[in-house]
Design a protein around this nucleic acid. Structure first.
Lengths: 259, 259
DNA sequence: ACAAAAGTGTTGGGAGTACACCCATGT
DNA sequence: ACATGGGTGTACTCCCAACACTTTTGT
């Protein structure tokens, strides 16, 4: 590494600040929503931003993301790869890293964005300390569709490059529930097939055939395991309750209609 | 961000060194190979490592990766998303970021790994300046299969956590050629269906039916466009030459047999 | 009785696999 | 003539979309 100058000379490399930013997604009332916090200081004072913070010395990137997620939502996240325990926890995985020189006007900041998927939480922000936080539908947070792409600043209501980060996170979630069992991360520990279908419909923004969906998910080995109970919380005929099975990769995958 | 202490106070965040590491893959003689360079200094002196280097002040992460790739291979890479120009160029995309506190024994280094896919190059290292570089089959670089996973150090011949980074890059490449047209990045500008098939076979390590493969790739709209010429460089009946088409997502995807 | 949501059965079409078979070159 | 790789045709299977139909609750 680092040809042409002495490697790892402390004066030979520029110092960076490293942060983690979180794209926390959930499905509320049939819509995909993201957690955003209101900024209290300049720059972008008063604008909405993704939650995040500095990585501490001697702290791993995933640990920093889990800490921020717990501070912001109270969720206990399991890292991707770790078997999901019985605790109420969200899925957490690294998304991408954003380090354009001008992305923060004050200093050089490299942000390791993470993607978290959580079930619909009763309280939007249990015990956070930021000024305010809310779940906002991602359509409101992303680029307005009809606007021409000429005024490249201020296109998104989010601060910094968080509009792009959110868009990347949403795209990751949309594609990943297709070939993995990740959609169950949006559900409570026990859920019905209809509730899982509404997750897919909310994330993809499409309508799915309830009959074929039922056959598909119950027929995929390892995706769902019946928990024995039933519920009528959605009205209508009582529905079987399921838990997420051990399978992580879906074969064959769920098919998103009309790409 | 950063609740509990003054945000962006220069003394309030620990400084990190930020580097880019490259997983450069190619297919040589029916095997997936990665570019590795021999380390000249401690630690891991004499061991093989992925090429990489520090990100410069005011340099974007992707720009740093492109610069390192050009220094190491002479390739001109187009970033993912940028339309592939006619120049001889490799595919380059961000892979993941590795920042465990102890991954470099000398200091806290956060490495943004990138994945590059290149056609088989005539010379392994045209004009590099490292001590030595070579294309090594990824099987030789990853964990020895038979060894018990107890002696957790020295399991891989690669320095630092580069064995893990390489494994992640290989897995990304293996899965991504399944549903994208990325396999053409392993081919020269003009190639035959058989050459493309040998790319899939080398990356996946499987044998594919030549007849069904031909039908599949020529029948997928936007994947391949005939260039008009033919070649007999593989022997046998002259084969049509193709270029990569405009499609990036393959629908339906290529299917990896016998997962 | 009616609405609403959960499930099951059936059918046609599109895509994959396996494999027989033909084509065009070099030696 | 034969080996080698390129390319086409075909039968069989599996999965999925579409939709008719039954089940079990609440009001």
């Amino acid at each position: 590494m680092m040809r042409g100058m002495s490697p790892y000379d402390p004066s030979a490399f520029p110092p960076f600040a490293v942060t983690v930013d979180l794209v926390v997604l959930t499905v509320r009332r049939h819509a995909l929503c993201a957690l955003v916090v209101r900024r209290g200081e300049q720059p972008f004072q008063g604008r909405w931003a993704l939650p995040g913070g500095f990585v501490r010395e001697d702290e791993d990137l995933g640990a920093a993301a889990r800490r921020e997620l717990a501070e912001e939502t109270g969720l206990c996240a399991h890292d991707a790869g770790t078997p999901p325990a019985e605790t109420s926890g969200a899925h957490l995985e690294q998304l991408a890293t954003y380090g354009a020189p001008g992305r923060d006007p004050r200093m050089r900041v490299v942000s390791v964005a993470h993607l978290a998927l959580a079930p619909d939480l009763p309280a939007p922000r249990p015990g956070g300390d930021a000024n305010s936080a809310r779940w906002a539908p991602v359509e409101e947070l992303l680029e307005p569709e009809g606007a021409p792409p000429h005024s490249d600043e201020q296109q998104t209501p989010l601060a910094f490059d968080h509009g792009r980060i959110l868009a990347d996170g949403v795209e990751r979630a949309r594609s990943k529930i297709e070939y993995s069992s990740l959609a169950t991360a949006f559900c409570p520990p026990e859920f019905t097939v209809g509730e899982l279908r509404r997750v897919y419909e909310g994330v993809w923004g499409v309508a799915l055939d309830p009959r074929n969906f039922h056959r598909k998910v119950t027929g995929t080995p390892g995706f769902l395991v019946p928990s024995g109970g039933t519920t009528t919380r959605q009205g209508g005929r009582p529905a079987q309750l399921f838990r997420a099975g051990g399978a992580t990769l879906l074969n064959p995958p769920m098919l998103r209609p009309e790409v």
